[in-house]
Design a protein around this nucleic acid. Structure first.
Lengths: 224, 224
DNA sequence: GATGATTTGTACGTATGTATA
DNA sequence: ATATACATACGTACAAATCAT
């Protein structure tokens, strides 16, 4: 019961719902409706919305409903680029300052991920993928950068999810990780940076390919 | 009158007051007191506080007063490191993607800053220093990274202000800028990154020197 | 373009949890 | 340890502005 119950919970629930596509980009967030839906009053709703607004997930307009942020393709690319740069920075710092234990654990998770790929276990693969990246953020030993990375990753998660279903992406992803993990474990900062930048750029690329092949423009739908 | 009057204004005013040291780190932010002081009700105060909490400037505790964030030396160093990395990333991207006009303007401001240093005009120097860094953020052509850089710079501003008064810092700062600006204008991405990283590290160093020589631990006081 | 309905913005009251005597 | 004081958390009410007809 340590959490700030209502607002904290609401902010998380709302963020999750938005990222899951329950409230699609551009949709209005009526305070009264949200209050009814989550069975609270408008006050905590407003405070949660304001919190989400500072993260960029939604937009507050003066006297009108808050709306879920619409990301243009150009903005999306900027998010991917920023994500790549932050992750690459974390990878570089991780190569410099990870403890031996951290390096071993990183290697371990990476290898387990390779097995998941061979065994064609997408959920284990995705889970370890997440863990691997998180370990690199932590390995940078910088809470500020870590928070930035987590926030960006969260923001981009709807756009990254789709790519796991792309044919041939997991094995390639594993090979890219291999370059990153290898560079980090041997302490090659420049190589770790370059490899991670490359990896995230390819993630963006495969997302764009996905958009091109499918008629989908928005990455999410109600079925999620 | 486009702004969301009360809350938006309050959040800005409060942030400014905190950064100026009116509310020192660790001090409690009583909602009623703030409401009286700024002549509004508690509701906008709460919303402004929550906004500041997401930026890390203050901390919300479940059923207790919000407090101005206390930055430990370790956290401060992480902030400086993150700042250096983000600025260096912006410099690298700027070297790659600045338009010719932007490069010329950057060079121009840099030269003007050199004159301000020669003429011993600290306020002009400080102003151009701010402008120069801002131009590099913009030059990266990535709004996400730019916002991160601005936010970090703002957060660290109380700790950077002091260093301008350090003997011999401005000419050194100018020389460090020279390396950055030169690398950017000639499009040398790696050099721009390295030079900026070096520059910000030296800023942190001079702040630490300042702390060591003076008995001051907190960077700001009421006279500002 | 004006008017009514709906929704946001702010104020305030009550309850609950925290700190203190 | 129990009780008291006090500040926050949430709910509700009213005013002002937007939008829809």
């Amino acid at each position: 019961m340590a959490t700030e119950t209502t607002v904290e919970k609401l902010a998380n629930d709302l963020a999750e719902a938005i990222l899951a596509g329950v409230f699609p980009p551009g949709s209005k967030l009526d305070e009264n409706q949200l209050a009814q839906r989550y069975e609270v009053s408008r006050t905590p709703v407003r405070e949660a919305l304001r919190q989400l607004a500072t993260t960029g997930l939604i937009e507050f307009r003066p006297r009108r409903s808050a709306i879920v942020s619409t990301v243009t393709p150009a903005q999306l690319e900027e998010l991917f680029i920023a994500m790549g740069e932050i992750e690459a920075t974390c990878a570089r710092l991780a190569a410099i300052s990870m403890a031996p234990t951290e390096r071993r654990r990183l290697q371990m998770v990476h290898e387990r991920m390779g097995q998941a790929e061979l065994q064609n276990d997408p959920s284990a693969f995705a889970e370890d993928n997440h863990l691997l990246h998180a370990m690199i953020y932590s390995g940078a030993h910088n809470a500020v950068l870590k928070d930035m990375a987590i926030s960006l990753r969260r923001r981009l998660s709807p756009f990254r999810r789709a790519q796991f279903h792309l044919e041939g992406r997991p094995p390639r992803s594993f090979r890219e990780h291999d370059a990153v993990v290898s560079a980090i474990t041997r302490g090659d900062a420049a190589a770790a940076h370059a490899a991670m930048l490359h990896h995230v750029m390819l993630i963006e690329q495969s997302y764009e390919d996905l958009c091109a092949t499918q008629t989908l423009r928005l990455p999410v739908n109600e079925t999620n």
